[in-house]
Amino acid sequence: MKTMTQVRRAARTLALASVASFAVSGALVGLAQAADKMIDQIHIIVPGGAGGGWDGTARGTGEALTKSGLVGTVSYENMSGGGGGKANAYMIENAESNGDTLMVNSTPIVIRSLTGVFPQSFRDLTLIAGTIGDYAALVVGKDSPINTMADLLAAYKADPAKVSIGGGSVPGGMDHLVAALVMEGAGVDSTQVNYIPYDAGGKAMAGLLSGEITALSTGLSEAIAMSEAGEVKVIGITSAERVPALPDAQTMKEQGIDAEFVNWRGFFGPPGLPQEKVDRYIATFKAMYDTPEWEEVRARNGWVNIFKPGDEFRTFLEAQEKSLGDLMKKLGFL
């Protein structure tokens, strides 16, 4: 295992070196040292491939941390496999040598440990902090006769099989659960949701635009651009209050539906990380929110700041595990 890690490290260094040598502009060198450096280096494990949501979160956060000078260097390692289980196992097995390593993760770590996709859960790791969130949204095509949640619910009550709701995750996955959560909140039978799974969010959006599904359950950030372009209508979002990025979109609450949901993203350390190190990580992330570099990254990605450090993170995760677990039991996924 150790030699493998070394090989990996070497490969990574090589990749970094080649990238750095190509960056002719020298922008990488001229980083302003604005804030006091709090940590020398962080290595972030991304449990999925390059270009995904986890990857974007890791690299975006890393960019803000280094550009603001809070952290010396941040390196990344994509470790896909087992729906994130492989990265979990890596964090746990190599806990002792992974003091500088963090893993990025999000709501699926809760869902997938419930369904038993992987044997570990967030309890097996050291919780650092939930850093950002994305609300969920229900979206319909621009030519759809449906304009509000009331319209959608009316159609659903008439014939639930005819109201197909697509999403970019498996049945029983996040997008499905959000749709069921909304139906639950509206007081209708959530087990009847005709959920149509796609293998990626982009393909689900294409499915909506092509008219093969009635509505789409998606992350709000993925819907904002399409909504601004007038291609889709956002009929309900799962935040407590309206979101400044899309002020016209009504919340579920406003429309009398008791459903709130946030897909959090955050960072985990290896198990048994000393408290003093945990505190330093938490303090670093806390300081990050006040930097202009973070604000730039956050704004361009449409992320929402949610800072849930340490124990607060644990309480939040336990609550989410409970509510999603109950819903999954009801839907027959557990």
Partner: peptide, 27 residues
């Protein structure tokens, strides 16, 4: 023209564009 990535590769390209403050789409 639509801002929809059809493959893993174009999904990464889309991510890069968004990171550069360009939103692909009809506009």
């Amino acid at each position: 023209t639509l801002g929809i990535p059809g493959s893993g590769t174009t999904a990464i390209l889309l991510g890069a564009l968004v990171a550069l403050n360009v939103t692909p789409g009809p506009r």
